[in-house]
Every structure is written in C-alpha cells, then in structure tokens.
Lab assay of single mutants.
Amino acid sequence: SEEEEEEWRRAKERGEEIIILGILWKPNDEEAERRIKEALRRV
C-alpha cells in the first residue's frame, strides 16, 4: 500500500531495519528489497 511504501522509504533513508509485509528488511538487503517490491505491487 501507499503508506507501507512510504514507511519503507523512510526506513531506507534512516538506514534502519524494518519489518514490512512480513518481510524483515535490513539496509542493503537486495533480496528482501526485491521481495518487498513484488509484494507491494501485488497489494
């Protein structure tokens, strides 16, 4: 969703871990980033 995407962007800017759509994303975690982008597209 729009607000999840916004939340994720803010976490990326701050360089902090975030759990979004049930996926743990850490800074520079390209695999998780790809999965999150896929999940955001499906929503």
Rank of each mutant, 00 (worst) to 15 (best):
N28S: 07
R9L: 14
P27K: 03
E17D: 06
E13L: 10
L21P: 00
P27R: 01
K26L: 07
I19Y: 13
I19A: 06
E30C: 00
P27H: 03
K37F: 12
I18Q: 03
E30W: 10
E3V: 14
R41A: 13
K26F: 04
W8T: 02
E6M: 11
I36D: 02
R41M: 11
A32R: 02
W8L: 10
D29R: 01
K26P: 05
E16S: 09
W25L: 00
N28D: 12
S1W: 15
V43P: 13
R14A: 11
E3F: 14
R42E: 12
R10T: 08
E17W: 13
E38H: 03
A11E: 02
R41G: 10
L24I: 08
A32E: 03
S1Q: 12
I23G: 01
A32S: 09
A11M: 06
E7N: 15
E30K: 12
A39L: 09
L40K: 01
E16M: 07
I19R: 08
G15S: 07
A39I: 08
E31P: 01
A11H: 08
S1A: 15
I19D: 01
W8P: 03
L40I: 10
E30T: 09
R35L: 13
R10H: 11
R9M: 12
L24Y: 10
E4K: 11
L40V: 03
E3P: 13
E2F: 15
K26R: 14
E16A: 05
E31R: 04
L24W: 04
K12S: 05
E33F: 06
A11R: 06
E6C: 02
E16H: 11
L40Q: 02
K12A: 08
L21R: 11
K37E: 15
P27Q: 03
V43K: 15
E2V: 14
W25R: 00
A32V: 05
E38I: 05
K37Q: 14
K26Q: 07
E4W: 15
E7P: 04
E31F: 04
E7I: 15
E38N: 05
E31M: 05
R35F: 04
R42K: 14
K12M: 13
I20H: 01
S1C: 11
D29E: 02
E4T: 14
V43D: 09
E2Q: 14
K26M: 07
R14C: 07
A39P: 00
E31Y: 05
R35V: 04
E4G: 11
R34D: 07
E6P: 03
E4Q: 14
R42L: 13
R9Y: 11
E5D: 10
L40S: 00
W25G: 01
R9C: 00
I18D: 01
K12P: 03
E30F: 11
A32G: 02
I23K: 01
I36K: 02
A39V: 06
W8E: 03
K12I: 10
P27I: 03
E3H: 13
S1K: 11
I23M: 02
W25Q: 00
